[in-house]
């Protein structure tokens, strides 16, 4: 087998650290990731005491071969897309660290934490962004 690229090696490390020490409410389907290292499905539970308590969400992370220099593409997928001012109904997330403010020091773990905190700080469930404006 060919030796893993720097990007694959880093994803493998991130996977084991995410499984060992996941942020609260976050889990990853490791078996699926082992088959497609560049496509992760991450489960996220709405944090207790927030508007999203009791809800389950699915996030999809897609990594290019230039990760971590390219940011991952992260979207909500599945039946339950959170109703949030910064989340489009198609699952697209408006979060600066996923575009202009990305840095290779960030990781799946830190992106998950940012999304949890984005959801948790929401005061009122409203989808102010429409797909047409996107």
């Amino acid at each position: 087998m060919a030796s893993p690229s720097p990007s694959e090696r880093r994803l493998q490390k991130e996977l084991s650290s995410l499984m060992k020490d996941p942020p609260p409410g976050v889990s990853v389907d490791a078996n699926a990731v082992y088959q497609h290292l560049n496509l992760w499905n991450v489960h996220m539970k709405g944090a207790d005491g927030t508007l999203y308590q009791g809800e389950d969400f699915q996030l999809q992370f897609r990594f290019s071969s230039k990760y971590p220099f390219d940011s991952p593409e992260v979207t909500f997928v599945g039946d339950n897309i959170p109703i949030h001012p910064h989340v489009y109904s198609n699952g697209h997330i408006c979060l600066s660290i996923l575009t202009d403010d990305w840095s290779p020091a960030l990781s799946v773990q830190s992106v998950c934490l940012s999304i949890i905190s984005m959801l948790s700080s929401c005061k009122e469930k409203a989808s102010t962004l429409s797909i047409e404006k996107h």
């Binding site: 720097p6 090696r9 880093r10 490390k13 991130e14 971590p68 290779p104 020091a105």
Partner: peptide, 14 residues
Amino acid sequence: DSINKNKECVICMI
């Protein structure tokens, strides 16, 4: 390692 606090390179995580 006596000067640098970081044990690994945060870019490649090695």
